[in-house]
Simulated scan of single mutants.
Amino acid sequence: MTKFDVSAVGFAVLDILGRPVTRIPEGGRADFIEEIRMTVAGTAAATGMDCAILGLKTQMVTTVGEDDMGDFLIAKMQRYGMDTGLVRRDGSVQISATILPVRPNGERPALHVPGTATTFTVAEADLDAALDARIIHLGGTGLLKSFDGEPSVAFLKRAKELGRTTTFDLIQANPDTVTLVKPLLPYIDYFVPSIDEAAEIAGLENPAEVARYFKAQGVRNVLLTLGGDGVYVDPEQGEPFTLPAHDIDVVDTTGCGDSFTAGIIVGLTKGWDLRQCARFASAVAAKVAMGLGSDGKLTSFDDTLEAMNSLPLKGQN
Protein backbone atom coordinates (compact mmCIF):
# COMPACT_ATOMS: atom_id res chain seq x y z
CA MET A 1 0.00 0.00 0.00
CA THR A 2 1.42 3.35 -1.03
CA LYS A 3 1.20 6.49 1.09
CA PHE A 4 -0.08 8.77 -1.69
CA ASP A 5 -2.42 8.55 -4.65
CA VAL A 6 -0.11 10.61 -6.82
CA SER A 7 3.41 11.95 -6.65
CA ALA A 8 3.84 15.05 -8.86
CA VAL A 9 7.51 15.31 -9.78
CA GLY A 10 9.35 18.06 -11.61
CA PHE A 11 8.50 21.50 -12.91
CA ALA A 12 6.95 23.98 -10.46
CA VAL A 13 6.63 27.67 -11.26
CA LEU A 14 5.02 30.75 -9.75
CA ASP A 15 2.71 32.37 -12.31
CA ILE A 16 1.80 36.05 -12.09
CA LEU A 17 -1.17 36.58 -14.40
CA GLY A 18 -3.16 39.61 -15.47
CA ARG A 19 -6.19 39.94 -17.72
CA PRO A 20 -7.30 41.17 -20.13
CA VAL A 21 -4.13 42.57 -21.72
CA THR A 22 -4.36 43.99 -25.22
CA ARG A 23 -1.04 45.84 -25.33
CA ILE A 24 2.04 46.81 -23.34
CA PRO A 25 1.70 50.54 -22.54
CA GLU A 26 4.30 52.81 -24.05
CA GLY A 27 7.06 54.29 -21.89
CA GLY A 28 6.10 54.49 -18.23
CA ARG A 29 2.35 54.70 -18.81
CA ALA A 30 -0.22 52.35 -17.26
CA ASP A 31 -3.28 50.50 -18.47
CA PHE A 32 -6.01 49.30 -16.10
CA ILE A 33 -7.07 45.65 -16.22
CA GLU A 34 -9.67 43.54 -14.40
CA GLU A 35 -7.68 40.90 -12.52
CA ILE A 36 -4.21 39.90 -11.32
CA ARG A 37 -3.37 36.60 -9.59
CA MET A 38 -0.37 34.62 -8.35
CA THR A 39 -0.81 30.87 -8.73
CA VAL A 40 0.86 27.49 -8.42
CA ALA A 41 1.76 26.42 -11.94
CA GLY A 42 4.00 24.14 -13.95
CA THR A 43 3.67 20.80 -15.70
CA ALA A 44 4.14 18.95 -12.40
CA ALA A 45 2.90 21.43 -9.79
CA ALA A 46 -0.30 22.51 -11.53
CA THR A 47 -1.21 18.89 -12.21
CA GLY A 48 -0.54 18.00 -8.58
CA MET A 49 -2.52 20.99 -7.32
CA ASP A 50 -5.52 20.07 -9.45
CA CYS A 51 -5.32 16.45 -8.27
CA ALA A 52 -5.42 17.73 -4.68
CA ILE A 53 -8.41 19.98 -5.41
CA LEU A 54 -10.16 16.94 -6.90
CA GLY A 55 -9.63 14.94 -3.72
CA LEU A 56 -6.47 12.90 -4.28
CA LYS A 57 -3.81 12.48 -1.63
CA THR A 58 -1.00 14.29 -3.42
CA GLN A 59 2.66 14.94 -2.73
CA MET A 60 4.85 17.45 -4.57
CA VAL A 61 8.46 16.66 -5.43
CA THR A 62 10.29 19.74 -6.67
CA THR A 63 12.71 22.55 -5.80
CA VAL A 64 11.86 26.19 -5.09
CA GLY A 65 13.94 29.20 -4.16
CA GLU A 66 14.77 30.44 -0.68
CA ASP A 67 12.88 33.63 -1.49
CA ASP A 68 9.49 35.17 -0.79
CA MET A 69 8.03 33.65 -3.93
CA GLY A 70 9.19 30.21 -2.78
CA ASP A 71 7.50 30.79 0.58
CA PHE A 72 4.28 31.72 -1.24
CA LEU A 73 4.36 28.67 -3.51
CA ILE A 74 4.84 26.23 -0.63
CA ALA A 75 2.14 27.88 1.47
CA LYS A 76 -0.27 27.81 -1.46
CA MET A 77 0.41 24.13 -2.12
CA GLN A 78 -0.20 23.32 1.52
CA ARG A 79 -3.44 25.31 1.44
CA TYR A 80 -4.66 23.00 -1.33
CA GLY A 81 -3.78 19.99 0.82
CA MET A 82 -0.61 18.97 -1.00
CA ASP A 83 2.18 17.32 0.98
CA THR A 84 5.33 19.44 0.57
CA GLY A 85 7.74 17.29 2.55
CA LEU A 86 9.81 16.69 -0.61
CA VAL A 87 9.82 20.30 -1.79
CA ARG A 88 13.47 21.27 -1.42
CA ARG A 89 14.84 24.84 -1.20
CA ASP A 90 17.75 26.22 -3.22
CA GLY A 91 19.22 29.59 -2.32
CA SER A 92 21.62 29.72 -5.26
CA VAL A 93 18.97 30.81 -7.75
CA GLN A 94 15.52 32.39 -7.63
CA ILE A 95 12.34 30.36 -7.96
CA SER A 96 11.04 29.61 -11.46
CA ALA A 97 8.54 32.35 -12.27
CA THR A 98 6.48 33.56 -15.21
CA ILE A 99 4.65 36.78 -16.03
CA LEU A 100 1.60 36.06 -18.20
CA PRO A 101 -0.32 38.93 -19.83
CA VAL A 102 -3.51 37.09 -20.78
CA ARG A 103 -5.21 38.26 -23.95
CA PRO A 104 -9.00 38.67 -24.20
CA ASN A 105 -9.27 35.37 -26.13
CA GLY A 106 -7.45 33.45 -23.37
CA GLU A 107 -4.09 33.17 -25.10
CA ARG A 108 -1.07 34.08 -22.99
CA PRO A 109 2.43 34.99 -24.12
CA ALA A 110 5.00 34.38 -21.40
CA LEU A 111 8.00 36.08 -19.82
CA HIS A 112 9.84 33.33 -17.93
CA VAL A 113 12.76 32.93 -15.51
CA PRO A 114 13.89 29.25 -15.51
CA GLY A 115 15.29 29.53 -11.96
CA THR A 116 15.04 26.49 -9.72
CA ALA A 117 13.64 24.27 -12.47
CA THR A 118 17.22 24.04 -13.72
CA THR A 119 18.60 22.84 -10.36
CA PHE A 120 15.83 20.38 -9.44
CA THR A 121 16.74 16.74 -9.02
CA VAL A 122 15.57 13.86 -6.84
CA ALA A 123 18.28 13.07 -4.30
CA GLU A 124 19.05 9.41 -3.66
CA ALA A 125 17.86 9.86 -0.06
CA ASP A 126 14.47 11.06 -1.36
CA LEU A 127 13.96 8.42 -4.06
CA ASP A 128 11.90 5.88 -2.12
CA ALA A 129 9.63 8.57 -0.69
CA ALA A 130 9.19 10.22 -4.10
CA LEU A 131 8.00 6.90 -5.54
CA ASP A 132 5.63 6.14 -2.65
CA ALA A 133 2.45 6.73 -4.68
CA ARG A 134 0.11 4.72 -6.89
CA ILE A 135 0.68 7.10 -9.78
CA ILE A 136 3.96 8.85 -10.57
CA HIS A 137 3.56 11.96 -12.71
CA LEU A 138 6.72 13.44 -14.24
CA GLY A 139 6.23 16.88 -15.75
CA GLY A 140 8.55 19.43 -17.30
CA THR A 141 11.15 17.48 -19.27
CA GLY A 142 13.03 19.98 -21.39
CA LEU A 143 13.27 22.56 -18.61
CA LEU A 144 14.67 20.32 -15.86
CA LYS A 145 18.34 20.78 -16.72
CA SER A 146 19.74 18.80 -13.78
CA PHE A 147 17.10 16.03 -13.89
CA ASP A 148 16.63 15.60 -17.64
CA GLY A 149 18.39 12.71 -19.33
CA GLU A 150 19.70 9.74 -17.38
CA PRO A 151 18.30 10.82 -13.95
CA SER A 152 14.77 10.94 -15.38
CA VAL A 153 15.21 7.61 -17.19
CA ALA A 154 16.44 5.93 -14.01
CA PHE A 155 13.60 7.46 -12.03
CA LEU A 156 10.82 6.23 -14.34
CA LYS A 157 12.51 2.85 -14.75
CA ARG A 158 12.52 2.43 -10.98
CA ALA A 159 8.86 3.50 -10.84
CA LYS A 160 7.93 0.71 -13.27
CA GLU A 161 10.04 -1.83 -11.36
CA LEU A 162 7.94 -0.98 -8.31
CA GLY A 163 4.72 -1.49 -10.28
CA ARG A 164 3.71 2.18 -10.32
CA THR A 165 1.54 3.71 -13.02
CA THR A 166 3.39 6.52 -14.79
CA THR A 167 2.02 9.64 -16.47
CA PHE A 168 4.12 12.16 -18.36
CA ASP A 169 4.01 15.60 -19.93
CA LEU A 170 6.61 18.08 -21.09
CA ILE A 171 6.77 21.78 -21.90
CA GLN A 172 8.22 24.00 -24.62
CA ALA A 173 9.24 21.10 -26.85
CA ASN A 174 11.84 21.74 -29.54
CA PRO A 175 14.00 19.48 -31.74
CA ASP A 176 16.53 19.11 -28.90
CA THR A 177 13.82 17.70 -26.64
CA VAL A 178 13.68 14.53 -28.76
CA THR A 179 16.90 13.21 -27.31
CA LEU A 180 15.57 13.74 -23.77
CA VAL A 181 12.12 12.24 -24.30
CA LYS A 182 12.86 9.17 -26.45
CA PRO A 183 14.63 7.14 -23.72
CA LEU A 184 11.69 7.79 -21.36
CA LEU A 185 8.97 6.47 -23.67
CA PRO A 186 9.19 2.73 -22.80
CA TYR A 187 8.51 3.61 -19.15
CA ILE A 188 5.45 5.81 -19.75
CA ASP A 189 1.95 4.39 -19.30
CA TYR A 190 0.04 7.59 -20.15
CA PHE A 191 1.64 10.30 -22.30
CA VAL A 192 -0.51 13.46 -22.22
CA PRO A 193 1.09 16.22 -24.32
CA SER A 194 -0.50 18.89 -26.47
CA ILE A 195 -0.58 18.08 -30.17
CA ASP A 196 1.85 20.96 -30.74
CA GLU A 197 4.43 19.55 -28.33
CA ALA A 198 4.00 15.98 -29.55
CA ALA A 199 4.14 16.95 -33.23
CA GLU A 200 7.37 18.87 -32.63
CA ILE A 201 9.01 15.74 -31.26
CA ALA A 202 7.53 13.25 -33.74
CA GLY A 203 8.09 15.42 -36.81
CA LEU A 204 4.50 14.69 -37.85
CA GLU A 205 1.26 16.68 -37.80
CA ASN A 206 -1.72 14.32 -38.04
CA PRO A 207 -2.82 13.29 -34.52
CA ALA A 208 -3.31 9.64 -35.49
CA GLU A 209 0.18 9.46 -36.98
CA VAL A 210 1.69 11.29 -34.01
CA ALA A 211 0.04 8.88 -31.57
CA ARG A 212 1.20 5.83 -33.55
CA TYR A 213 4.74 7.21 -33.51
CA PHE A 214 4.83 7.35 -29.71
CA LYS A 215 3.20 3.95 -29.29
CA ALA A 216 5.83 2.47 -31.60
CA GLN A 217 8.43 3.92 -29.21
CA GLY A 218 6.91 2.07 -26.25
CA VAL A 219 4.26 4.40 -24.79
CA ARG A 220 1.20 2.40 -23.74
CA ASN A 221 -1.50 5.08 -24.00
CA VAL A 222 -1.23 8.38 -25.90
CA LEU A 223 -3.64 11.24 -25.20
CA LEU A 224 -3.11 14.31 -27.38
CA THR A 225 -4.86 17.47 -26.26
CA LEU A 226 -6.09 19.45 -29.26
CA GLY A 227 -7.05 22.72 -27.60
CA GLY A 228 -10.51 23.80 -28.70
CA ASP A 229 -10.78 20.68 -30.87
CA GLY A 230 -10.84 18.31 -27.89
CA VAL A 231 -8.60 15.27 -27.43
CA TYR A 232 -7.35 12.36 -29.53
CA VAL A 233 -6.79 9.12 -27.60
CA ASP A 234 -4.92 6.04 -28.78
CA PRO A 235 -5.31 3.51 -25.96
CA GLU A 236 -3.23 0.43 -25.22
CA GLN A 237 -6.33 -1.69 -25.82
CA GLY A 238 -9.19 -0.86 -28.16
CA GLU A 239 -9.59 1.56 -31.03
CA PRO A 240 -8.45 5.21 -31.05
CA PHE A 241 -11.15 7.82 -30.45
CA THR A 242 -11.70 11.57 -30.39
CA LEU A 243 -13.74 13.55 -27.87
CA PRO A 244 -14.88 17.16 -28.40
CA ALA A 245 -14.04 20.02 -26.07
CA HIS A 246 -16.71 21.71 -23.99
CA ASP A 247 -18.32 24.79 -25.51
CA ILE A 248 -17.46 27.45 -22.91
CA ASP A 249 -16.44 31.09 -22.68
CA VAL A 250 -12.66 30.85 -22.33
CA VAL A 251 -11.04 33.26 -19.87
CA ASP A 252 -7.49 31.87 -19.74
CA THR A 253 -5.89 28.75 -21.22
CA THR A 254 -3.05 28.66 -18.66
CA GLY A 255 -2.76 25.19 -17.14
CA CYS A 256 -5.47 23.57 -19.26
CA GLY A 257 -3.16 20.77 -20.39
CA ASP A 258 -1.88 20.25 -16.85
CA SER A 259 -5.43 20.08 -15.53
CA PHE A 260 -6.43 17.60 -18.24
CA THR A 261 -3.64 15.32 -17.03
CA ALA A 262 -4.94 15.70 -13.48
CA GLY A 263 -8.37 14.59 -14.67
CA ILE A 264 -6.86 11.49 -16.26
CA ILE A 265 -5.01 10.68 -13.04
CA VAL A 266 -8.17 11.07 -10.97
CA GLY A 267 -10.08 8.78 -13.33
CA LEU A 268 -7.35 6.14 -13.16
CA THR A 269 -7.46 6.12 -9.34
CA LYS A 270 -11.20 5.46 -9.57
CA GLY A 271 -10.77 2.54 -11.97
CA TRP A 272 -12.58 4.20 -14.89
CA ASP A 273 -11.95 3.18 -18.48
CA LEU A 274 -9.94 5.60 -20.59
CA ARG A 275 -12.94 7.10 -22.38
CA GLN A 276 -14.55 8.02 -19.07
CA CYS A 277 -11.20 9.34 -17.80
CA ALA A 278 -10.91 11.56 -20.89
CA ARG A 279 -14.49 12.83 -20.51
CA PHE A 280 -13.80 13.83 -16.93
CA ALA A 281 -10.42 15.34 -17.84
CA SER A 282 -12.09 17.48 -20.50
CA ALA A 283 -14.45 18.84 -17.85
CA VAL A 284 -11.50 19.57 -15.54
CA ALA A 285 -9.79 21.53 -18.31
CA ALA A 286 -13.01 23.42 -19.05
CA LYS A 287 -13.38 24.46 -15.41
CA VAL A 288 -9.79 25.73 -15.43
CA ALA A 289 -10.25 27.63 -18.69
CA MET A 290 -13.28 29.45 -17.24
CA GLY A 291 -11.09 31.36 -14.75
CA LEU A 292 -7.65 32.91 -14.39
CA GLY A 293 -4.68 30.68 -13.59
CA SER A 294 -3.91 26.98 -13.36
CA ASP A 295 -6.87 26.28 -11.05
CA GLY A 296 -9.35 28.63 -12.76
CA LYS A 297 -12.82 27.76 -11.51
CA LEU A 298 -11.89 24.25 -10.38
CA THR A 299 -13.32 23.64 -6.90
CA SER A 300 -14.08 19.98 -6.23
CA PHE A 301 -14.60 16.50 -7.66
CA ASP A 302 -18.39 16.65 -7.33
CA ASP A 303 -18.66 20.04 -9.02
CA THR A 304 -16.47 18.83 -11.90
CA LEU A 305 -18.45 15.62 -12.27
CA GLU A 306 -21.60 17.72 -12.58
CA ALA A 307 -19.87 19.92 -15.17
CA MET A 308 -18.90 16.83 -17.18
CA ASN A 309 -22.57 15.91 -17.49
CA SER A 310 -24.00 19.41 -17.95
CA LEU A 311 -21.57 21.62 -19.89
CA PRO A 312 -22.37 21.68 -23.62
CA LEU A 313 -19.97 20.12 -26.09
CA LYS A 314 -18.71 21.77 -29.24
CA GLY A 315 -20.76 20.68 -32.23
CA GLN A 316 -23.64 19.64 -29.99
CA ASN A 317 -27.07 20.73 -31.21
Rank of each mutant, 00 (worst) to 15 (best):
T167G: 02
T141C: 02
N105R: 00
P114Q: 09
D128Q: 14
L131N: 10
A97S: 14
E34C: 09
T98R: 02
V102C: 07
G48T: 00
D148G: 01
L156H: 09
A44D: 04
L143W: 10
R134Y: 09
A123F: 12
E124H: 06
D132F: 00
L144M: 06
T121G: 06
A123P: 11
K57C: 06
E161C: 12
Q78H: 05
P104T: 00
T141V: 15
G81A: 02
S96H: 05
G85H: 00
G55R: 01
A117K: 05
R103H: 13
D169Y: 08
T98E: 03
P101K: 01
K160M: 10
L127A: 10
G42D: 07
F147S: 04
I53E: 02
L131D: 11
I95R: 08
I53C: 02
L144Q: 02
K76T: 13
T119C: 06
R79Q: 14
P109C: 10
S152R: 02
G81V: 04
K76W: 02
G55C: 03
L143S: 07
E66Y: 10
A45N: 03
S96K: 03
T118I: 07
A129M: 12
T141N: 02
D67H: 08
T63W: 09
L100F: 05
T116C: 09
G140S: 01
A117M: 00
A110G: 05
I95W: 08
P109N: 08
C51M: 00
I135P: 00
E150V: 13
D128A: 15
R37L: 11
P104F: 06
R158N: 13
V93C: 09
A154V: 10
D126E: 15
G42N: 03
V87T: 08
D90T: 09
E150G: 08
G48W: 04
M69Q: 13
M49V: 03
A41Q: 09
P104L: 06
D126N: 13
A44K: 06
L73K: 07
D83R: 04
D148E: 06
T98F: 01
A52N: 00
G55N: 01
D90G: 07
A159N: 12
R158Q: 14
G106Y: 03
V93G: 07
T98S: 06
T166I: 11
A97Q: 15
A133F: 00
A123L: 13
D50C: 14
G115D: 04
G139D: 05
G85S: 14
D71V: 04
D50K: 06
D71A: 06
M77V: 01
S152E: 11
T167S: 13
G163F: 12
E161V: 12
I171E: 12
T58E: 06
H112P: 03
D128N: 14
T118H: 12
L100M: 07
K157E: 15
